[in-house]
Amino acid sequence: MIMDVLPYLTAGWIFLVGLYGVVTSSDLIHTVGSLAVTQSSTYVLLLAIGYREGGTAPVYGDTSARTPVVDPVVQAMALTDVVVGATVTALLLALVLQAAKRHGTTDPDQLTGLRG
């Protein structure tokens, strides 16, 4: 029973840990890293959903069609998710890099006065 829900609890835990990281962050690089942690919860959840007892990778090249495989749909989703995550992380890190280069800080509190 506990092993059945463990992956889901783990995914939820990782999501919350990532959020905690963003909330308490005082460095933008750390913020973007925490965001990537948040995202990795989605990989865990997707792969947990697609898991089949005794299943192998869903590639039919060298196995018979009757071999149990894990759900290929979530694998495709996780793959797309990785691409999305890489894009977001790269873009945000590029913005942080510009902030560091041109304005000499990665502390969000020192960057500007967006408020009110």
Binding site: L28, Q39, L92, L95, A99, R102, P108, T112, L114
Partner: peptide
């Protein structure tokens, strides 16, 4: 070249990605 758009874009990106 202006720090404010960088800051705004980062806030926007982080919240929307979450």
């Amino acid at each position: 070249e202006d720090p404010r758009p960088l800051h705004g874009a980062l806030t926007f990106g982080v919240i929307n990605s979450i």
